[in-house]
């Protein structure tokens, strides 16, 4: 339990909520990341703000990491494929990425769009989506033994 960190988690969560609040009250847009990057690809009429948002998201992470390096003191790396599955790690991650992209697009939202914004709007659709993706993720971790 050496890694239990409820205070930084709550502070970070508040910042995420504030980010969603700024975008909603400022521009009337939902801060759903899968929706924002998904709609950067086709030539939609209002793409520029999405690009600005995404670049700022990476910059915000980068700058905060420079200011408070301790939170990532152990380094940040991706998982390796569980040995028992006999799948090379790049293939494992490619499958995970593909499912994340296709699932969030078809289901029209991810942890931020359905999880934060949808639940804050008391959306029944979002509640169902969150229960499903969180439940399936719990089962997946248990079945794959990835950690």
């Amino acid at each position: 339990m050496e890694s239990f960190s409820p205070l930084s988690a709550a502070l970070g969560g508040s910042l995420i909520g504030l980010a969603a609040a700024v975008l909603w009250l400022g521009n009337g847009r939902i801060a759903g990341i899968s929706g924002i990057f998904g709609q950067v690809l086709p030539p939609a009429g209002s793409t520029l703000w999405r690009v600005v948002f995404l670049v700022a998201l990476v910059a915000g992470t980068f700058v905060t990491a420079q200011l408070f390096p301790g939170l990532a003191a152990n380094g940040v790396r991706l998982v390796e494929a569980p040995a028992a599955w006999g799948v090379p790690t790049p293939i494992w991650l490619a499958i995970a990425g593909l499912l994340t992209g296709i699932g969030t697009r078809i289901g029209n939202g991810c942890t931020s769009g359905h999880g934060v914004c949808g639940l804050a709007r008391l959306s029944r659709r979002s509640l169902v989506a969150v229960v499903v993706f969180f439940g399936v993720a719990i089962v997946t971790v248990a079945v794959t033994g990835v950690v």
Partner: peptide, 22 residues
Amino acid sequence: ARLIGGAALFGIGWGMAGICPG
């Protein structure tokens, strides 16, 4: 069905890698 199916696919991907889109 798309809402539920999409969320389920995302759940598998999230559980495999621990990485959601943000």
